[in-house]
Design a protein around this nucleic acid. Structure first.
Lengths: 109, 109
DNA sequence: CATACTAGATAGGCTCTCTAGGTATGACGC
DNA sequence: GCGTCATACCTAGAGAGCCTATCTAGTATG
């Protein structure tokens, strides 16, 4: 899983993380892989972006961590989404769709 | 034209500016109004975001300014898109569509 | 024993946006 | 004549978020 340049648009990383973790609890490394896989290699999450984002979301109470055996190597910090996190996810999805729709309006003008 | 909170997603302002100016040369103040109007009040460009962005785009050679009478008040600095700017716009549009498509994939998962 | 993959993390820098101010012109009401 | 508003330009400083680079450490493979 080679890490290349990704150029994530600022503000969307939290949304992406909350979404994939809401579907299934995952550890950080797995979150990055999942986002990359589902987006067909378009979205590449750097570790230096990922871990600060996870700590941010944890600090805000949107994610809850739990240490577990990963089975293949070091211990894994598995995150699940809290109820507040699901609420936040809902809001961020709506904001994104509203925003992307507005940008589309301008591009179609 | 009341200015409210906008929460522009970082990295998209240059794209929006290039797009509206490519359709028709405009001065800064008019660019903000045009973006707001076309996006149906979803995208609100603050002046403190707008003018630095214009200077950035001018410095990079994507926009070319020209002072003109505005007709209603102070002089207007009317921008047009250079050939390099059009090339840049094309790339940014493609990047945005690729990006938005990838985010949509994750949100639909 | 070196390499690669997994899994976590931090430091420093950089870019971009926002808040909050400032300057100046012309039109309108009083 | 004066205040107010809309127009039109601009900057400084702060904060947020992403990236590059680097580090640690366990496990597996050749």
């Amino acid at each position: 899983m080679t890490q290349k340049r990704s150029e994530l648009v600022q503000g969307t990383l939290d949304l992406l993380i909350l979404k994939v973790v809401a579907l299934e609890p995952l550890h950080g490394y797995g979150i990055a892989q999942r986002i990359q896989a589902v987006s067909k290699d378009v979205l590449l999450v750097q570790q230096g972006s990922l871990y600060p984002a996870l700590h941010r979301l944890e600090r805000k109470g949107f994610l809850k961590p739990e240490w577990r055996e990963s089975g293949n190597g070091p211990m894994a910090k598995v995150y699940s989404v809290t109820p507040e996190g699901r609420k936040q996810l809902k809001e961020e999805v709506e904001h994104w769709q509203r925003y992307a729709g507005a940008v589309a309006l301008v591009l179609e003008a």
